[in-house]
């Protein structure tokens, strides 16, 4: 380590980003802890104290991470296919937005199809109907037989006759 000049190498960007995130998280926790009333009562340790310990620990980890970013050889993460990941995440987003209006089957069918798209099944004209039918079966089993309360939409009403 001695005599080594860190500036000869680019720092590990991911570790630096983590250092930044940890510092922000630690800061938010400390700010939130300061806002709490110290009602530790007889224990002497209130809700803010434990939060503060964690906040300081996060700041320390941020420093450690920052130092490591300059000293350690960055491990190159595996190359990622961002488009695939976005399809899957988008499927979840679609489900969240549609769940309570369109009902479980349609929303979850879209999640199914978008996930399949992310994994390489490109034909949405096939996967969306398959997904909706699959989700509808799941709905009928879980809501119908097991009385799990799942959000119902037009399709569910059609099949449960309500």
């Amino acid at each position: 380590m001695s005599g080594y000049n860190p500036s000869q190498r680019r720092p590990d960007g991911a570790a630096l980003a983590m250092a930044g995130l940890l510092a922000v998280l630690g800061g938010v926790i400390l700010w939130d802890a300061a806002r709490l009333h110290q009602t530790g009562g007889y224990s002497g340790v209130g809700p803010g104290d434990v939060a503060r310990w964690i906040g300081y620990a996060l700041l320390a980890l941020a420093v450690w991470s920052g130092v490591a970013a300059f000293r350690e050889t960055p491990v190159r993460p595996p190359r990622q296919d961002a488009v695939s990941v976005l399809w899957v995440a988008g499927g979840l987003g679609a489900q969240i937005l549609l769940l309570n209006t369109a009902g479980f089957a349609i929303a979850t069918g879209l999640l199914f199809a978008f996930t399949a798209r992310g994994f390489g099944k490109r034909n949405l004209a096939l996967t969306i109907p398959v997904g909706i039918i699959f989700a509808l079966v799941v709905y009928l089993v879980f809501a119908g037989l097991l009385k799990l309360t799942l959000p119902a939409g037009p399709l569910e009403h059609l099949f449960l006759g309500k």
Partner: peptide
């Protein structure tokens, strides 16, 4: 509010 505008059930 937007998400949970459930369609009316025919339940009592």
């Amino acid at each position: 509010a937007a998400a949970l505008a459930l369609p009316a059930h025919a339940t009592d």
